[in-house]
Write a protein that binds this DNA or RNA. Structure first.
Lengths: 202, 202
DNA sequence: GTCTATAACGGGATAGAC
DNA sequence: GTCTATCCCGTTATAGAC
């Protein structure tokens, strides 16, 4: 069932991911999805049971959930843990630009899908919050409000998603993954007052 | 014409702003807008000429465009200019949460409305970029990539928009405007290595 | 200026044939 | 498993009455 999961089903999922990312959930019709996938309209009902269910399936299929548990040791150090978290989130986000766009769309709306998004992404940011808190207790980080600090970290980590929109303002080409990760990590650590000798730019 | 601009027209605009912000452009029907406004469906065509035109009118009516020209003097100093810019953008964004949500929605999609968004918001970020560049030339700011630095500033400035979504992770109540501005400004200046004595948190 | 009524279309979903 | 044909609903837009 997990193996020969009907290639057609996957084709539909890939098509839906692509179209939802560009046009949003409401801006995409099941007919469009099926055309893109080379599938018949009826297959959406047959395989998933409706458009909303396709959306859910997207997350169950493509959202990397178990990755964090591999790094339990690193996540005990506030500085290293936060570095790792930012790096992993940006990597995921640049590897699967479509899914991350879908996530960001719902983050600014009030929709029946918001809850789903939060259930998948919330745990990751919860971990980030814990690391910030521990780092402050250990005097590794310096900030006033934990809430505010967390939101800043979220903002920096997801900042690169706006590059498509404002590409007209940028002079370098599309940035490499490593460059984006490094910039974000350094920006956050500097802002948090973490001592990270040797990482300051010239 | 600019004075007694038919109150009904304004009621429709306010209703549209509210609904577009929560449900997105495609997720909102003109019927819904008119019901919310207490107007008849036909008035959308009569006043604006269609749903898309209502969207445009929203920006022409509510987007604050001329504010920047008032501060020409302050905008000559990289540090003070950047502070002002961040402060103004966050203030606008918290005053009119709806319009700023509408803007952010389109920033992650590819839609016929993207161009409109960029034409209104682009100039502001262009100014931010210039300030960053000048600040680096004057050794006030320290960063490697101008592109990356700009995106980080954008990310921090707009970070507070995600508070609705992740309110479950936050312990303080909804943050005050001043607190948000101060956190963002300090975060950015620290990350850019700007010397701002006395602003470091305890 | 505001309304009703209707046109013209596209949406999601599925029954039933194959 | 896959398709066609159809249902039924909601959509935008507007003509024409008031």
């Amino acid at each position: 069932m997990a193996q020969a999961e009907s290639e057609m089903k996957m084709r539909i999922l890939f098509a839906a991911k692509k179209l939802f990312a560009r046009q949003g959930f409401d801006g995409t019709s099941v007919r469009q999805i099926c055309e893109e996938a080379g599938a018949n309209v009826a297959l959406i009902s047959y395989y998933f049971g409706g458009k909303e269910k396709v959306y859910r399936a997207l997350f169950e299929c493509f959202f990397p959930g178990q990755r964090m548990s591999q790094y339990e040791d690193l996540l005990k150090s506030p500085v290293e843990g936060l570095k790792l978290l930012i790096s992993e989130i940006i990597s995921f986000s640049m590897n699967d630009k479509e899914l991350s766009s879908i996530i960001q769309q719902e983050m600014v709306m009030v929709s029946p899908r918001t809850e789903l998004i939060v259930s998948f992404t919330g745990p990751v940011w919860k971990k980030a919050r814990e690391l910030l808190e521990q780092g402050r207790e250990q005097s590794l980080f310096h900030f006033d409000s934990l809430d505010q600090a967390l939101m800043m970290v979220v903002g920096v980590t997801l900042a690169h998603k706006k590059q498509n929109c404002y590409s007209g303002l940028l002079t370098d080409g599309p940035p490499k993954r490593e460059e984006t990760v490094e910039s974000a990590v350094r920006f956050v650590l500097l802002a948090l007052g973490a001592d990270t000798a040797g990482t300051a730019p010239s």
